[in-house]
Design a binder for these strands. Structure first.
Lengths: 197, 197
DNA sequence: TCTATCATGTAACCAGTTACATGATTTT
DNA sequence: AAAATCATGTAACTGGTTACATGATAGA
């Protein structure tokens, strides 16, 4: 018997969450929603492309969380289909949000994968690469802080940026500490790479 | 003209990195590698299933990073194909690792998505949910620390677990701070949810 | 000896990305 | 008026997941 993963949502893509969250305010057609998401910088928090957006609308409709509201045509532009949230959709939004906030999920950041294989590189090279990473991280923090400083929204709408900053700073601290510890490990670690040219 | 994303590796799945990293020591067949990865707890760092493993072996072979080494049959078990790393594979491993260590990539954690939509929930409920999250995070930290404490490997082979701990602790601090700030925002935020039943 | 689990792999399905299509504006 | 970009959507492709298949041991 196979393991049955819990929380098998009909639509798993987080872009679907954003769609539900925006449609709760007013019905919209996919393209318009896409522009809104970009304008609000949601693309920093949720991965999406033009294509995935239409796909997710399709999935949500099939699952009954949204439904066609009207289909209108303006001038000779392609016909556009406006979707509205259903009651099931409203329920799903709440339920999904609750799960995401209350239950941290296991994630697989790229850096973790690299760390788990880190001995594949020579310690001296790792040290140099980590210093590059520190620079890049500092730039990231700068960008995020600029966004927070330059926005005129209520801070509630910037928490995700604050969260990013917190994690980036934690990573900076970790990398610094790692760099220090490499010193002590260097002999053994380097010996492991003897005769590699 | 469309944006051409840089670093278009022939194999993008991080499971491929693990395969290269293990095959650098000795040739292996997919199933064996799978057992090894599980035994070493790599499945905490890199997402993989039985199916994705065979897929990645196929991709790596097509890309020329690994090649059939021999195909043997033991008793009447299905024939198994042992793969070995090629020179191109060795180069790819190094190059990929360098990129992953030096360049932080933009990621999309689930919690960030939820935070960006957090106003969809009532502040009182958010507070309760965040307290649940704190409990869960504490458990996670405990697990990770137990792994570090209970392992007899060189600490170099536990850095990824240390990294996880660092990020978890940063998240705990962030959530605590968020909880405090909710107090001040509560009136406006709650008003936003007036008349919802 | 029947049942479960291991060992090994393939095939079918689904989700996500990229490319294509086409008329309407805007810019050069 | 040609070229670019916007607006809107569909179709084709590719990568990942899930389900299926099948003989070999091991446990009840």
């Amino acid at each position: 018997m196979e393991v049955v993963v819990a929380s098998q949502r009909k639509v798993g893509n987080l872009l679907g969450l954003a769609v539900l969250g925006y449609l709760v305010r007013e019905p919209m057609h996919p393209y318009e929603l896409g522009r809104l998401l970009k304008a609000h910088g949601e693309d920093r928090s949720i991965k999406f492309t033009h294509g995935s957006l239409y796909m997710v609308f399709g999935q949500l409709a099939k699952a009954g969380f949204i439904a066609e509201h009207e289909t209108s045509r303006e001038g000779q532009r392609p016909e556009r289909t406006v979707y509205a949230l259903t009651d099931a959709g409203r329920a799903e939004l709440k339920d999904w949000m609750r799960e995401l906030v209350a239950e941290p999920g296991h994630e697989y950041p790229r850096f973790v994968a690299a760390l788990s294989m880190i001995s594949a590189l020579h310690p001296d090279e790792v040290a140099a690469l980590l210093r590059d990473r520190l620079d890049a991280l500092a730039r990231r923090v700068g960008e995020a802080e600029a966004i927070v400083a330059g926005a005129d929204a209520h801070p509630l709408f910037l928490v995700e940026e604050e969260y990013r900053i917190a994690l980036l700073n934690a990573e900076v601290a970790f990398v610094r500490r790692f760099l220090e510890r490499i010193e002590g490990w260097r002999p053994q670690w380097a010996a492991f790479h003897e005769g590699e040219r």
